[in-house]
């Protein structure tokens, strides 16, 4: 990283200042992360005093062979669809939003930016309830609107549309982050490049293709990575809109809390299967690893082609 500079202050004081943060990071960050792996080989519950033991690979055997294959495949499919759906649409729309709000032709940018960022401030629970209300299948405003075109939907309540609604709500909530990061990336592109382009008589499309997009690409890349990891780990919107029982929206991350903490699952605290939950968390971890590797590989190949 960097060379050690001569400290103006005694070392013990500097270390004493670091200690609280370091202790918490190790005790409640690093150690739990490693322990997830260990607990995945146990049948530990979420209740103190209940005896528990190491059960070898039994949790993994249950994951792969003893649960309903249909449920497992549904969860894996939902995880992939949720991840790709969120990552693709969030980044595509965020790119358009950032371009629009960076345009010289537009007034009131600050206001528009603030409105789109607002859901981040409101949080997941408020966001979930707002959309449950708006997407009320029984004559809610959107139900009425699509009714004009002869369509109808159960939205969060129907197996065929629930996951799409979760993806939409997730994007609506997290869009602000992607937008703001893109805007910062756009503003760091030197205006001289555009001025030079103007002298050469480039069209708007050419400017986008040869200046904006290539220079914004590193930012978009960060955004995509954040969206892939974020959407795979995210379960709050799913939990608060469709609950833990609806298999149509269950993802790996949602299953972790379903087994480990019984949130919305309807069963009592005694059923908290934290060892098995840890197994799901480990599989999710591997899943994230594979997803990011596939993405990185695809990006590299694309960059080599250009």
């Amino acid at each position: 990283m960097q060379q050690t500079a001569k400290a103006s202050f005694p070392k013990w004081a500097l270390l004493a200042g670091i200690l609280p943060a370091l202790f918490l990071q190790v005790a409640l960050g690093l150690i739990p992360s490693v322990m997830t792996f260990i607990l995945s080989f146990t049948d530990i519950s979420g209740v103190k005093g209940v005896p528990w033991k190491f059960i070898g690979l039994a949790n993994y055997r249950e994951f792969f062979f003893q649960q309903s294959t249909r449920d497992l495949l549904a969860v894996l499919k939902n995880t992939v669809v949720f991840c790709i759906g969120v990552t693709f649409f969030q980044n595509l729309i965020a790119l358009f939003i950032a371009l629009a709000l960076n345009s010289k032709l537009i007034k009131g940018k600050g206001f528009f930016r603030s409105v789109i960022f607002l859901p981040v401030v409101l949080g997941v629970l408020v966001t979930s309830y707002i959309w449950m209300n708006t997407l009320n299948p029984m004559e809610g405003p959107i139900a009425k609107l699509i009714g004009l075109f002869g369509l109808q939907s159960g939205f969060f309540a129907s197996a065929s549309s629930a996951l799409a609604c979760c993806i939409f709500t997730q994007i609506w909530w997290a869009m602000g982050y992607s937008m703001v990061i893109n805007l910062a990336g756009l503003q760091s592109i030197p205006s001289e490049l555009y001025e030079a382009g103007e002298i050469d008589g480039t069209s708007s499309w050419q400017k986008f293709k040869y200046i904006t997009f290539p220079l914004l690409w590193p930012t978009i890349n960060v955004n995509i990575m954040l969206a892939i990891i974020g959407s795979l780990q995210s379960y709050q919107i799913i939990l608060f809109t469709t609950g833990g029982r609806n298999m149509a929206t269950q993802t790996l991350a949602a299953r972790v809390v379903f087994f480990a903490f019984n949130i919305n699952s309807g069963s009592g605290a005694g059923a908290m299967r934290q060892g098995y939950g840890a197994t799901w968390a480990m599989i999710l971890f591997v899943f994230i690893l594979i997803a990011t590797l596939i993405y990185q590989r695809a990006v590299k190949r694309r960059e080599e082609m250009l």
Binding site: A27, P32, S33, V34, M35, T36, A260, Q274, A281
Partner: peptide
């Protein structure tokens, strides 16, 4: 590095 390690929610609860 903690961003790239498995989620520790369950063991943190246990601790």
């Amino acid at each position: 590095i903690s961003m790239f390690l498995p989620d520790g929610t369950i063991p943190q609860f246990q601790i």
